[in-house]
Amino acid sequence: MTDLLVVDGVSRSFRGLRAVSEVGFTVPEGGIVGLIGPNGAGKTTCFNLIAGVLRPDQGDIRFAGRSLIGLRPDQIAAAGIGRTFQIVRPFPELTVRQNVTVGALLRHRRVADAEAAADAVLSRLELATKADRHAGSLTLPDRKRLEVARALATNPRLLLLDEVMAGLRPTEIDAMVAILVDLNRTTGLTILLIEHVMRAVMALCQHIVVLHHGELIAAGPPAAIQSNPTVIGSYLGEEALG
């Protein structure tokens, strides 16, 4: 498999504090990769660097062979990277359908076409019955699904998911996992996800990258990560105890 996303020795500091320090990893085309680590490990900063919200101090990020450095977030979305936000950010005054249509308009000039594409995504994420509700009136699980739906509507090759399982009940987590697995199998969508819910990470990911204090401390298949003593010491152990 070729690498769709290459993060190459990327660093970023805030006021002298290194949030991400020389992190490098790759995401293969069609793969599902997990990005895990304790709070403050630099995971979301990594996402913001990839999505173009932040610019790395050093290092390179390449997507499908092309460097993303210097591109704006909307250009990166147009290049084929969709993202969700850790704290969901729907357009509250717009309906669910309109929210997703905004995403679909990236690939469709005509609103009618975008709406049709949005409806397809909505039924895939089981939100079709709520299409005419205002996004601001949705429950948290529905908002999380809307967040995924809106990103998916941009028809990305790579989807960045930032804790889309947090706050969901176990059955809802299973439903989300099923949706993502299905998307990955049927459309070949590549996924990079930040997640604390280890159940979902283990069920979804073929490869896991572990960050701690902004540094990459381990990377490998789920089984290896689960038994990695450094990871258990700094992250999984805490989770298990918690």
Partner: peptide, 20 residues
Amino acid sequence: YQWQAIREDAEAAEAVGVPV
């Protein structure tokens, strides 16, 4: 649609490809 998205949340609009 893009205007309304910006009005609601410019950063989220940018993330779905709206040239803000």
